[in-house]
Amino acid sequence: MAVLFAPAAKAKVAAIIVFFLVLPYFVSPYFISVVNLIAIAVIGALGLNILTGFTGQISIGHGAFMGVGAYTVGILTTKVGLSYWAALPLAGIMAAMVGAVFGIPSLRLKGLYLAIATLAAQVIIEYTIIHWTGLTNGSAGIVIDAPSVGTMSLADDKNFYYFALLIALAAVVCTVNLFRSRVGRAFMAVRDRDLAAAVMGINLLQYKVMSFGLSAFYAGIAGALMAGYLRVITVENFTVEVSIQYLAMIIIGGLGSVMGSIYGAAFMTLLPIFLRTAADFLGAFLPNVAHFLLSMQTALFGLIIVLFLVFEPEGLAKLWKDIKDYFRLWPFSY
C-alpha cells in the first residue's frame, strides 16, 4: 500500500476503516441499507471516473454496462447453476468485454461523437435485454437467491454491508494505485492531449479500449452487487437515466478524483432520500407537495449538474479541499 506515506496518514486511514467496521452497531438498519446503496454506487462511479475523468472519454452507456453485469449474474446463477461467487468476477469480465467492443469506435471518435456512440450502446443493450426474452426473461426480470458465505446469508443488510464495504474498499485502493502505474499515467496523458500521448509512445487504441474495458468491469461488478443486493434484476435499474445519474455523480464529486467519486456517489444517493424527507415534512403544510417529488428530483438533478459545472467544475472534492485549506491556513489566506 504505497498510499500510506506518513504515520499520520496511516492513523487516519486506520481510523476511517475502524469507523466503517463498527458503524453497523451504532446506526439503524435503514441507515445501513442506504450505505449499502452508496457502496455500490461508489464502485460504479469509480469506473465511470476512470473513463471520463481520467481518460477523457465521455460515456452515456454506463447504466447499460451495469445491466450487463447484473444480467450475467442472473443468467449464470439461475440458468447455468453457478454460485454467486463464481458469477461475480465473470459479470465484471463480461461487462468489460462488452465495454471494450463499444470502446473501439473511440479510436476514430472524440468528445461529441463518442458520447453519441455510447448512447447508441445504451439503447442497443437495453433493447437486447428487453427483447431476448429466452435469456433475460424480458421486462419481467430475473429473481435470484441471496448469496451466502457458509451459513451466513447476505440477505441480511448488515452482512451485505461488510461484503459491499470490502469490495468498495478494494475498488478504491485499486483505483488509487492504478494512477500510480504506467497504465494510469497513460490514461491521463490520453486525456490531456491524445496527440502528445501518441508521440510519447502510448498506443491510443490499446489504452482507450483498455480504459473502456476497465470502466465497464467496475460497472459490471457494481451491477452484480446490485443484483445480489436487490435480488430482482429488471431493466429499469439500468436505463439511460441511470447512466446520466452516474455522470452527475462524477461531475458533482469531481472529475478525475478518486475521493470525488465517493463524495458524488454518496451525494446522489442521499439527495432523493433527503428530498423525500423534506417532502414528508412539508406535506404537513402543503398538501400536494408529494405529487411533485419526482419532478422536483429530476429538475434538481439537472440544476445541480449545471451549477456545479458553472461554479465548481472540480466538484465536491475541490470544495472539501478548499475548506480544509481554509482552516489549515487560518487566519491567513495563503
Binding site: 455522470l247 429530476t298 429538475a299 449538474i305 459545472l309
Partner: peptide
Amino acid sequence: MATIGLSSLMRG
C-alpha cells in the same frame, strides 16, 4: 454535460 443537465432540469 451541461446540456444533459439542462435537459434534466427542463424535464423536471
